[in-house]
Structure formats: structure tokens, C-alpha cells
Design a protein around this nucleic acid. Structure first.
Lengths: 200, 200
DNA sequence: TTAGTACTAGACAGGTCTGTCTGTCAAGAG
DNA sequence: CTCTTGACAGACAGACCTGTCTAGTACTAA
């Protein structure tokens, strides 16, 4: 699984990399507020002063984590993964839910960090972290919109908004324990594609 | 709007009621961890000792809040609201997204407290609060399943699981600012009903 | 050798959180 | 009138959090 931020194969990378890798693991699994600086630097084997040399505050580390999450999750895992799993853009869209299906069955399934952070910090993007999360969610929609445009689905922007409802809904439901949530969303995704093609 | 926990019309109700009302407002709007005991008792005009007389711990107040949320939101607002808005069970199902549409347009839209608490406390129901939230989400599905059974939709249980994906997905998307999320989900809901009727 | 740099270890300050405790007050019961 | 009950106000303990600071260590380069 490519989702656990490899970044470097060296035995003992730079402190900044160790911090970011540790942040990725802890934040994505347990949320932001639940992970303190002390635990983080201990896990990363980094002194506190070193941490604050590389990141002015905890929030800056969270922002770096979200950026990394986009690189690893959105781009590498979802976008590239879907592209490599199917031939046509339409099949690639549907392959997202094949990826999700495997993801939901993992014991370390951690949910969508962007949704988690957004909801952890006030719902509507009031804080910098909420705003950043909302932006990264928008970027996910852009990826979907790209697939939809390639598939020549009418109104790719509106399509992506509906499609994203299926993605996030299935992720939240998987967090409740519904292991078939991806398959259910995939069925609805097929219907959505068909409906857009007919009524476009 | 019936969603803001009236409970009593008296000018100065009992401390326990004031606490629960205040908890409802603060917890649903800002989450659990973001609201401290001190703020809560100050807002409710209740002494700290009085608070701990009525609730052994903060978690117990949160559990009471979740129970109240089910009474006010799930049963009064969603279930009774949908039932009163349409004649047939199928139309009542779709009316849920009419309710959501109005809800999403409110300036004090607060999202689904059960999802919020579930994600705030570790995703999978490890903690008591996460477990309780998951249970209340299950109860929402039971309500949907009831509507579906009345509408004679085949396999109401599976139907409710898919339908719930649409509900939660649209709520999360509304938290990002998509005011049309309910309408999008409603369209998909129509397709889902049709598909279940055909393939049942 | 000496200076500079980046790291480690950990004490510390200042704040916040939950939960406990002391003491006061008001109202009703006997 | 006294005693009990429940609520009030708020200090306090102990834990935890973020962020600063001191002190010592290893490495590199002039």
C-alpha cells in the first residue's frame, strides 16, 4: 500500500522528514487534537527545539501534513491508482470505488483526513486548518472533474459534486463499519454516470 | 425550526435542563472537545458542583446530549418532519432531502452531530462516545428502513444503507459550502429507489 | 584550533482542561 | 427556629498542552 508516506528509503532521514512521516501516521490515524507535540517528537526521535526550528507551530506541521496527504492520497493513490486500474476514463472513475473497497477492508483504515480535519475544526472553514482542508477537498473534486471531462460526461463540474457526495458518504459509512459501502457507492456511481449521459 | 431543543417553556428551568439545553447548543455547533466545562456552566448559569451533581463526568453529559439529539433531530425533525411533508412513504423518503435543503441554507447549519462525534473520537467506535454515535447512526438507518418497508421497496435494509450514504455525503458536502448538496442527493435518491424497484 | 551549525535532552512558563472541595445562601419541613 | 436540601461562587489540585529556553554534543570547515 502506497498510502503510508514513504518519502525516503534511507535508514535515518533528516529530522524534518521523520517529523512529517510521524505526523502523517499519527494525524491520519488519530486526528489532530488527539496527538500532542510531546508524543510526536518522541515517536519521531526528534528534540523539541528541533521541531520548532523546522515548524513555527503545530498548525504549520498540520498544514504540511495536509499537503503531504494530498500528494500521497489524492494524487498517488486515488488519481494515479484509478488511472492505472482501468483503460477508459469512465472505468477509471468507477475504479475509485474498487480502491475504496480494498481500503475499507484494511484494519488500519483511517478515513479521509480532509473531512476529519474539517469537522474537527468547526465544520465551515473558519480556521486556517478548516480552510486548508476545504481546499484539498475541492482539489479532489477537480480530479473527478478531470476524469469526467475525459469521459465526455456532460457538465463535469456538477457531476463531480454529486460524485464526491458518494465518495465522502461511503468513507463516513465505512468508518461506522459498513465494509460494503464502496460497492454500494459504486452502484450509485454507475447510475449517476448513466443519468448524466442521458440528461446531458 | 424545531431543532434547538426547547424542552421547556419556563423562564428558568431546573439546572439539569439548562445544562442539557446549553450542551445541545454548544456541542452541536462547535463539537465536544472545543467546549470546556467552565464555558458550559457559565453559559448555563450553573455552579460547577451542581453540574457534577447531575452528571458524573463530561462524557455523561455528552451521552445525554447525543440522546437528546436523537429525540430532537432524528425523531422530531427528520422522521416526523418527513412524514408530515408528504403522503406516500416514497415521497416521505425524498422529502428528507427537502428538509436537508432548508437545513443546509441555514446560517447556523451544524452538520450531523453523530458523524461529528464519531469522527472526533477515533473513527471506528473505540471510545464510549464513538460507540454511542455509531448506534444513533444505526437508528437513523432504521428509520429509513421503516420508510422503505412502508414504500414496499425490496430489501429495505440494503436500501437504507445506500440511502444513508447519500444523507451523510450531502451533509459533509454542505459543511464545505455546497448549498445544493441536498438537491444532488435527492436526484441520486430517486435513481436509487427506481433501481431497487426494478432489480428487486 | 576555533567558530559555526544542527542536533539532543529536558526543564520551564503560562495556559487550559477536568474534576474536587470549601463555604455561603435561600427555601421548605418539622 | 432549626435542620436539611440543593444550588450558588469560586479556589484548588493535578494533568496536559504548546511553545521557549538552557545546556551539552557532534560534525564541518576555515
Amino acid at each position: 500500500m502506497v498510502m503510508t508516506a514513504p518519502v525516503s528509503g534511507k535508514a535515518d532521514p533528516e529530522p524534518r522528514v521523520r517529523l512529517l512521516d510521524t505526523a502523517y501516521l499519527l494525524f491520519s490515524q488519530r486526528g489532530i487534537r488527539a496527538v500532542g507535540i510531546d508524543e510526536l517528537i518522541k515517536e519521531a526521535n526528534v528534540a523539541k527545539a528541533t521541531f520548532y526550528r523546522h515548524f513555527p507551530s503545530k498548525d504549520d506541521l498540520v498544514l504540511a501534513f495536509l499537503l503531504e496527504r494530498e500528494r500521497v492520497w489524492t494524487k498517488q493513490w486515488v488519481e494515479a491508482g484509478a488511472r492505472s486500474r482501468a483503460e477508459t476514463p469512465q472505468e477509471q472513475l468507477l475504479a475509485i470505488f474498487d480502491l475504496f473497497d480494498e481500503w475499507f477492508h484494511r484494519t488500519d483504515f483511517e478515513g479521509c483526513s480532509f473531512v476529519n480535519v474539517l469537522l474537527e475544526f468547526g465544520g465551515r472553514s473558519e480556521t486556517p486548518l478548516g480552510a486548508a482542508s476545504a481546499t484539498y477537498l475541492e482539489n479532489i473534486r477537480s480530479v473527478i472533474e478531470g476524469f469526467a471531462a475525459e469521459a465526455e460526461i456532460p457538465d463535469p463540474s456538477a457531476f463531480a459534486l454529486s460524485w464526491h457526495i458518494l465518495m465522502k458518504g461511503s468513507i463516513v459509512q465505512a468508518a461506522e463499519g459498513d465494509l460494503k459501502a464502496a460497492k454500494r457507492a459504486q452502484v450509485m456511481g454507475r447510475m449517476l454516470i448513466e443519468q448524466f449521459r442521458l440528461n446531458g
